[in-house]
Design a protein around this nucleic acid. Sequence first.
DNA 1: AACGATGAGTGAATGAAGGC
DNA 2: GCCTTCATTCACTCATCGTT
Length: 273
Amino acid sequence: MSSDPRRQAGSPTSGQKRASNALELGPRKRPMTQDPLVHHGRHFGRAVHTFCNVQTLVTNGLSLMGEDVDEASLTAHKRKEYSMFHALLKMTPGLEARLMESSEEEVIHIADLIQKGANGARADDTKGMKSAVIDWITPKGQILNPHIPRNVKAGRGFNHEHTGALLCPAGLDWGNSETRAKLVSGQMQISGDQWPVLLYANYSYDPEDPWNGLLRSGLLVSAFKHIFTSPSSVDQEPHATRSGNARIHGMHSVTKASTAYVTTQVNLTFCTL
DNA sequence: AACGATGAGTGAATGAAGGC
DNA sequence: GCCTTCATTCACTCATCGTT
């Protein structure tokens, strides 16, 4: 609401602005109907490639398509990019035809719409999970000490006993005060291949078998359900009154990309600003 | 310093479905 | 039929970062 301290005094709220738009366009109507490409872009970002430059992907994809190139001759990177382009075409009805009859400028516009969807979905999921994750990590019938506000990112990360333990790289001992101090102070840098223990089943890491239980934690399952089925499907009988994202987009199985997406989102919810 | 692009975060609109 | 709840999407503001 307008209690947002960042909002300048006297400036209209977004709701007020929308209300004025509604007056121009009639009651209970969105100012503009959204291009379906944005809708499909949302799922593309979640299930195929999160941090994708769609414009580059589409431009390069069209270029390769025009050349009728032998995929075996491509580099691994190009081959992967090309397969993602095909995934995009497959999940977006009419996209291929639309691209084929579009000018260069229109192709860029189309890519922007898909990008807008992907970025928007990411922002929405970040927002939704930020508060939900507090419920998932709080033991039943207990409260976290110190308390972590549901809608504030500050106070998480290594600053908090509980989130710090979950973020602690597998193989390190969060119980060791020296290790903990180095993590909190930032003196100990964590490399990209040091997985946090929150990704492991039962938060348990086996140094003899680092792949055992990786990406199988209950936290990731909850996050996956939250995003792809519905928030209410996480830890109770779902009481959703409409289809979740998976059904809307015809998603029948977990993909590597969707797992990576969920993992990224979960990590983000634990990090401070 | 000014500017633009981008991302994070917010509140509200919309639509679907169930309950009464 | 109306009301309520829930999931999803949208428009918006503000902060941050890179470039000029």
